[in-house]
Amino acid sequence: MITLNETFQKAKAKGEGLLIGYITAGDPTPDQTPKIADALIRGGIDILELGLPFSDPIADGPTIQAASLRALNAGTTPIKVLDMARQIKAEHDLPIVVMTYYNPVFCFGVDGFLSRAKDAGVDGFIVPDLPLEEAGDYQKAAKARELDTIFLATPATSMVRLRKIVDASSGFLYLVSRFGVTGTQTSLSDSTLQLIKHVRPFTATKVPLAVGFGISKPKHVQQVIAAGADAVIIGSAFINIVKNNISNPLVALQELQATARALKSATQP
């Protein structure tokens, strides 16, 4: 099984950036998720980020909020999300990271959930409401199971914090591109590109740099990679395709694959 680290090294050797695809697990239904993942992987995503739906996703915009609600209404549970990861891993050799708010993990029991996740083939976790200062127990549990802990950095993060966050991150660093929540936008702001250039020296020798929030078009991907990021994270753009084709899942899968392909090409020189 290829690890996050190896995936980044492989891309580096080829001289290309990575495409990380986010989907909300269980949206619109749990049985669709492996098919959606399959379409994105065929389209060329390098890493799958599987969102574990939560009732109160405070860091997410309307697109992922609605996706979370659809997934929960369809009966998605934390254990079912791990089952989906296992199923995807059985067919594809690519790293899967789980994005989850902390409470579902805490409620299950941190050690127990991380053990189950490891067993399902999950490579790492992104927990957006668990800042470094509160992450002690979780870091210990993740480290013991060789799960990567991906922390987030933002435009509001000071240099002092940034150094600590970089040191604590493994797999990659998730750089939030802007002030705000997840969701698509039509153009990428200059401040995002400046932010990448500012953060790059801190991560360069330590951990790969992935940039997310508000990136949806091949042109954005090119710009972000050119500015020095190792990877881009795309979420809401994929989820919009799922949402717009709920009654026609085959069309959704075709579009997801084509969109992933176009975005992936933009990571290549």
Binding site: E133, R161, I165
Partner: peptide, 12 residues
Amino acid sequence: GGQFVPEILMEA
């Protein structure tokens, strides 16, 4: 208690 918030709020 504590501060279980997104990183973007930590400095704030």
